[in-house]
Design a protein around this nucleic acid. Structure first.
Ligand SMILES: [Mn+2]
Ligand SMILES: [Mn+2]
Ligand SMILES: [Zn+2]
Ligand SMILES: [Zn+2]
Lengths: 147, 147
DNA sequence: TTTAGAATTAAAATGATTTCAAATTAAGAA
DNA sequence: TTCTTAATTTGAAATCATTTTAATTCTAAA
């Protein structure tokens, strides 16, 4: 899984400094960054980097199966997940944080696998849960106590 | 469920002709229309209707729990589902059609319900599957046979 | 070292959605 | 009814994320 660099070379994909930096950042930031997050994190170290490069590199990594793109935010920005393990996501509607959920329930769902979708090829599966995280819940309780 | 009109009146929400038309359209079009779909469908009958009204009405209906907004298209438009039954969705990446999947697997998933997400309040759940629908698969087979 | 193709850049363009201020309409009071 | 006020609608402009463009720079292979 960390052989992505070697892997990309084998595939004949040019490893530019920008691409290396973006991959390195994604490796160390598994908290579902947006394209803008990546751009801002790298702009001091690589002041000339363009947001267009970030988008095109994310697209490249996605197309080659190294990252997943999540559309969990209903209208906001897309975010990215540098991980191979299959998991779900929870979005806190108060603080906008995303929490990983490890679960196989979708992949093993008998109805999805069998009954419906005959003749369909299912590739990617994303499950998004929405609500209020424990941290935000605690804050709400504190506030209501004060009143 | 069809008492939405009465329901909205009770809530004190004004029932304008535009809102009535949009609700009526959504009722009869359960194929996950986008805001633009709604707008285009109504523009001959209501030539003065603005797309801003469509968006604001969809927002109103969503906020009051009558419709669901889906972000299944990774970058494209949002689409809407006038239904109360909990179900999943499949998006064909070739023809852009959306198929309903009836399944309870997410809601009953023990890991989601128990293990993780302690202290979190989970409201909405959306599961999105991506792939190629049976119709598009057949077309692909035909093409490869011709060669 | 040369060179051709690929990648990067900054800026402009795009597309979906939201905001805005002015005009219209709904609904309750008189 | 008519008046009044607040809510809604409208069309246009603004916003925001993402993509495209064309010029420049870089990469890698000869
Ligand atoms: Mn994740
Ligand atoms: Mn549906
Ligand atoms: Zn939170
Ligand atoms: Zn299809």
């Amino acid at each position: 899984m960390k052989y992505i660099i070697k892997d990309l070379k084998i595939k004949g994909i040019t490893l530019t400094p920008q691409r290396m930096a973006i991959i390195e950042f994604l490796k160390n930031n598994l908290n579902h960054p947006t394209a803008e997050d990546v751009y801002k994190a790298l702009e001091e170290k690589y002041p000339s980097m363009s947001i267009a490069t970030v988008y095109s590199t994310l697209e490249l990594l996605k197309a080659n199966g190294y990252i997943q793109e999540l559309s969990i935010r209903k209208r906001g920005k897309a975010c990215f997940d540098f991980t191979s393990k299959n998991h779900h996501h929870f979005l806190c509607l108060k603080c906008d944080s995303i929490i990983d959920i490890e679960s196989e329930c979708i992949n093993t769902c008998p109805i999805v696998k069998a009954g419906q979708l005959e003749g369909c090829k299912v590739g990617e599966i994303q499950a998004y849960l929405y609500g209020v995280c424990s941290g935000c819940n605690k804050k709400t309780i504190k506030k209501s106590n004060k009143k």
